[in-house]
Design a binder for these strands. Sequence first.
DNA 1: TAATAAAACGAACGGTCGTGCTATTAATCG
DNA 2: CGATTAATAGCACGACCGTTCGTTTTATTA
Lengths: 220, 220
Amino acid sequence: MIMKALKRGETLETGDGRGIPGPDVTKGERTRVRILDEAAALASEGGIGAVTLGPLADRLGMSKSGLFAHFKSKEALQVEVLVRAAERFTEVVIEPIREEKDKAKRLGLFFNNWLGWIEHPSLGSGRGGCPILSAHFEFDDVPGPVREQAANHNAQLYALMRRLVYVALPQADEKAMVAAIDGLALSHLLRFRLMRDPAARKDTMHAFEALMKNPPLKVA
Amino acid sequence: MIMKALKRGETLETGDGRGIPGPDVTKGERTRVRILDEAAALASEGGIGAVTLGPLADRLGMSKSGLFAHFKSKEALQVEVLVRAAERFTEVVIEPIREEKDKAKRLGLFFNNWLGWIEHPSLGSGRGGCPILSAHFEFDDVPGPVREQAANHNAQLYALMRRLVYVALPQADEKAMVAAIDGLALSHLLRFRLMRDPAARKDTMHAFEALMKNPPLKVA
DNA sequence: TAATAAAACGAACGGTCGTGCTATTAATCG
DNA sequence: CGATTAATAGCACGACCGTTCGTTTTATTA
């Protein structure tokens, strides 16, 4: 397999959305990504609040100070972890639905991908839950840049969902519908992770299908 | 107003569910309740993880060690905070619905009370959100007694909701219905607290009414 | 390869955390 | 009241936190 040499700053797209940094990317850039991925895995298990420098450095086999030098503060690191997780979310949950040519079917596909992400977020070695949703509840009342980033990501997600709803069910009230769908995803997270209910997915899908069949309608 | 003297261990029911400890209750018992209430207020603002001995002692105007002496460990304190919050939840959200004699209407009443609690949980001086739901997402992947307590409380809540659903809509699939209702409450929390959407309640109620009109049905 | 810049390290800092002790004060009861 | 017990304070500890700094190692480039 012949490939042209990568110049600095280029990345080899691998299709899984992760990308392999080219050899001429500065070393700092490479470890920076390593740090963010491992931090996301950590956040996946114990929430953003669990992203702490000591344990993170241990996992990466490097020193606290060496790690810290990549970021201006711990808060900045936490924000970047959320950004990175949001990128992965886009790649795993959102991007793939564009392959469905029947646009009306995209909403169902999106919801399905989302449930998959909630059950198994593709974040490094983490076997835990989605750090984005955790952050939403962890920081919903804590002012600061983390809260802003969380709210910002959620706003984008809501906007996307409203568009998907409008295309799939033009007669439905978009905002009420988004509330219902978002809610089903959140409740699924609880029943799957906290309650460990083996029937969680079945129940979620049953409710979702009923919702699609009889959505809240626009008010006249 | 004449009242009989309270014996030790008795509490004067005030109707607001809080109760005034009788004068013969040991002082330790009284401050213990004070601690739990203030801790719940703290948890309300920054999650259970924010219930930390130093700041809590400051708020109460007492020493860290004096406070700590009331509990075997910080973890035990956190669990008791959740228990206390769950008690208040029962008093504020669940108990009042028994006054509705038309049992079919109780589900709607419950949901309404729940939204009120989510917007303004009656927990001491805290102006933040519901510490129970925060704990669900904060500890859904963190093993330990806090997680167990959270899961336990949620299980009871789900059981109650299933019963309410069965009475109100016998033809509905209880578990799917619970998923949808639970989800609407969770999503409401996000739209109300994180997004600060002034229309949150309207959208939530719209979706809820559509759900009541066309619930997911039992499978044959 | 030598010169230069980037990255990682090790040690230390002030601070806060949870948790033991011992002494002291306050509540309770005979 | 005085005697006894419960409640609180004061203090110290070891661990970990985020952060800084000066040094050393490793990449990069000329």
